[in-house]
């Protein structure tokens, strides 16, 4: 199938701003679907609220647009009832780690087979540029006009600590890597977290004088390095991208099947 077969063309052009990184995530995700030649009937995309959450409206698979931060909880419900489906949960940084922080760590801890995509643009774009838990110390936002004194989460470290069995990071500059990571995450069993650094030229970019969408995408190229590279030792400020965790642990719905089996034997 061509990538256009996976979208709902009637909703295009989409609502995202010119140069928004979320469109690039959508693009990479569609290419992952195409490469895997996966049927639309096998995919369920569940999203919460925010610019990022709009992504589920544009893909022609099974989609749920749910409540803020709770996309993973809804996805857990779908996966428990229909374990054969591929669950993909695209979330924004605020949706995943502020409002949905608890759902995020507990889904990771259970190792339920869901692909969680954190589209990290470091701001709440839809509501007017408030700072998020990933904005980081020293940034500016509508709600931090002088300076933001909150330190940011490191999504990779958080996901690792919470027990996710596949953790990766990429950026919108590295679109081919992004597609590859999506494919890997979809194919493997267990809770996968992929953080994608995306640009919000409208709010984060303007507030922090980061320039145009093009400048922001370039900065992802300049400020990141492959995980374990020499460059990181020389300039510790670089953000690593690539796969950080890849391990096999029993998957939640399979374990739950065992519980059902045990319970039935006792009857």
């Amino acid at each position: 199938m061509a990538i256009k077969d996976y979208i709902r063309e009637r909703f295009f052009p989409h609502i995202w701003c010119p140069g928004c990184g979320h469109g690039m995530v959508l693009n990479a995700l569609l290419r992952a679907f195409e490469d895997l030649a996966i049927s639309k009937n096998e995919i369920v995309m569940v999203s919460g609220i925010g610019c990022s959450a709009r992504i589920s409206g544009y893909v022609d698979v099974h989609t749920l647009h749910t409540i803020h931060g709770r996309a993973l909880a809804f996805a857990t419900g779908v996966k428990m009832s229909r374990p054969e489906l591929n669950l993909i949960v695209p979330m924004g940084d605020g949706d995943a780690l502020a409002i949905g922080g608890n759902h995020f760590i507990h889904a990771a801890r259970r190792n339920i087979d869901i692909t969680a995509i954190v589209m990290n643009n470091r701001i709440y774009g839809m509501t007017g540029g408030q700072y998020s838990p990933l904005s980081g110390y020293g940034t500016l936002a509508t709600t931090a006009p002088f300076i933001n004194i909150d330190h940011a989460f490191d999504v990779v470290e958080l996901a690792k600590a919470a027990g996710a069995t596949f953790v990766a990071r990429t950026t919108t500059y590295h679109v081919k890597q992004m597609s590859e990571l999506f494919k890997e995450a979809i194919l493997r069993e267990g809770f996968s977290v992929i953080e994608v650094l995306t640009q919000c030229p409208t709010y984060f970019g303007r507030k922090n004088k980061a320039g145009s969408a093009v400048d922001m995408v370039k900065s992802f190229k300049d400020n990141t390095t492959p995980v374990g590279s020499k460059a990181k030792l020389e300039s510790p400020g670089l953000i690593e991208r690539g796969i950080f965790v890849q391990k096999d642990l029993p998957e939640y719905t399979r374990e739950y099947d065992k519980v059902i089996e045990r319970a039935m034997k006792k009857r």
Partner: peptide, 11 residues
Amino acid sequence: KLCELRCPDLA
């Protein structure tokens, strides 16, 4: 095809 892969608008 880098333009096609990077386009945020699938345009």
